[in-house]
């Protein structure tokens, strides 16, 4: 069981007029075995926060702790090892898989990262099949190239690849945003099943409040790089405190028509 703790994390980019703050002193915890949802609109910094946690962008301040160990205090090699239990799944099913590698090759490569991976070809193929079972994909998919699969299938392969290194924490960055509504449910159900089966914690990021609420135990609302509200999922949705949260809730299209009950101050 791994916990991810982020403390006063800040990330900056270079803009035309000077540094642009994308993440502004964010403190967040993903307790072991729980799902924390992060919701916000474009430019809120939620994706940047995720990328900072897995080390794709460098923070300019604050710390990321995995199982209590501050990553900043480690050597680069040690840091890479410490990060391994935290894996990420990206939004765009078109670019998250190497177009020149078959599904089987990609999964084998990911399996090779774990020291305990089996040596022989048969053992490796068996492990690939196991991964595909986990994400309920047909074994024959292993021989396919990404371009031959649908968006939903590609997302499942991306999930399988992340699972290959036996992570404890999955960061899902808008994983259903590019999928059709009918397929979204399947992916969300899959994540729910995997969480139960493997005891994963999940940081679930989306701009879709309804999806985040469904998938998460706790919700954080991000706006302009800051977390403006955080709490139990049901509470945040039923009794939001921050005006931005209320505006966000108000804006979610409702089946049956808009109602003016939650006015924006």
């Amino acid at each position: 069981m791994t916990a991810v703790d982020v403390e006063r994390l800040s990330v900056q980019f270079h803009g035309r007029g000077g540094p642009v703050v994308a993440v502004d002193e964010v403190t967040l915890s993903v307790p072991p075995g729980s799902v924390v949802g992060l919701v916000g609109e474009s430019g809120s910094g939620k994706s940047t926060l995720a990328r900072a946690i897995v080390g794709l962008v460098p923070p300019v301040g604050g710390s990321v702790r995995i199982d209590g160990v501050d990553l900043g205090t480690l050597s680069p090699a040690a840091r890479r090892r410490a990060r391994r239990p935290v894996q990420m799944i990206f939004q765009d099913p078109n670019s998250s898989l190497n177009p020149r590698m078959t599904v089987g090759a990609a999964l084998t490569e990911a399996l090779g990262v774990r020291e305990r991976a089996g040596r022989g070809r048969a053992v490796r193929d068996g492990e690939v099949a196991e991964l595909l079972d986990l994400v309920t994909l047909d074994h024959r998919v292993a021989a396919s190239y990404p371009r031959e699969l649908s968006g939903g299938q590609r997302q499942r392969v991306a999930i399988a690849r992340a699972l290959a290194v036996r992570p404890d924490v999955l960061i899902c960055d808008e994983v259903t945003s590019a999928l059709d509504a009918s397929v979204t449910g399947a992916i969300l159900n899959l994540l729910r099943d995997l969480r139960r089966q493997l005891g994963l914690s999940i940081l679930f990021i989306s701009h879709n409040l309804a999806v985040v609420r469904y998938a998460s135990d706790q919700i954080g609302v991000m706006h302009h790089g800051r977390i403006v509200e955080f709490g139990d999922a049901e509470t945040v949705v039923r009794s939001p405190e921050h005006p931005y949260t209320r505006a966000l809730l108000d804006a979610v299209p409702r089946l049956g028509g808009a109602d003016a009950s939650t006015a924006v101050p």
């Binding site: 007029g17 540094p19 703050v21 502004d24 002193e25 301040g61 302009h224």
Partner: peptide, 11 residues
């Protein structure tokens, strides 16, 4: 560190 609260002057 510049936070978004501080406006960046346009040059």
């Amino acid at each position: 560190m510049v936070s978004l609260a501080t406006p960046v002057p346009a040059g």
